[in-house]
């Protein structure tokens, strides 16, 4: 383009091609990026209050087993995942409720309450947890996870707050 203000025919074509090409590239290119990363920008499943059982059925000294299923929609597919745990009443006080996740902290097998052993036993690697979820024996690195948030509904049903993802 040098010093003259007049654009040569060649340069005009070059500049026009560049601009139009750039526009087309941007119009298709930018949405394409969002198209690719879209699943990463989506929120996971929904958080929800999940009922686990009647408070009156939970007895002091005996862990009360519960389980529930959550459905996660991934694209065009629905995946159902099962969760479970034990509600443990340590005393008569209704506030003294501990809700454990029955997923073993070692390698995610499901632990089961054994009345005989008075412990949660994991079938996979012989892990043993106390009634309150502390590690008694075996390889788990930490105590059983706890559903911290729970509430009791008007008709006496315990609900836990389930966080997705």
């Amino acid at each position: 383009m040098s010093d003259s203000h007049e654009l040569s025919r060649r340069d005009f074509i070059k500049v026009t091609t560049g601009i139009v090409g750039g526009l087309i590239g941007a119009i298709i290119g930018l949405p394409s990026v969002f198209y690719l990363i879209d699943p990463a920008l989506q929120e996971g499943g929904k958080d929800a209050w999940v009922p686990i059982g009647k408070f009156e059925d939970m007895q002091v000294g005996t862990p009360y087993p519960f389980s529930f299923t959550r459905v996660q929609v991934n694209g065009w597919e629905r995946t159902a995942s099962s969760f479970g745990g034990y509600a443990v009443r340590k005393s008569d006080s209704p506030d003294d409720l501990l809700i454990l996740n029955s997923k073993c902290t070692h390698l995610a097998c499901t632990v089961n309450w054994s009345a005989e052993a008075q412990a949660y036993l994991c079938p996979c690697h012989d892990a043993k947890f106390s009634m309150e979820g502390e590690v008694v024996d075996g390889p788990p690195p930490r105590a059983l996870d706890i559903y911290e948030e729970h509430r009791i509904s008007e008709d006496g049903i315990i609900e836990i707050f389930f966080k997705a993802g």
């Binding site: 949405p31 394409s32 969002f34 198209y35 879209d38 699943p39 694209g75 065009w76």
Partner: peptide, 23 residues
Amino acid sequence: DHAYDSINYIMQGVAFGWLIRGI
């Protein structure tokens, strides 16, 4: 099993899926 559903998902679920498929 999934061809129709996956295209439905592209058209309605994915950002700019309608544009990419439209083009």
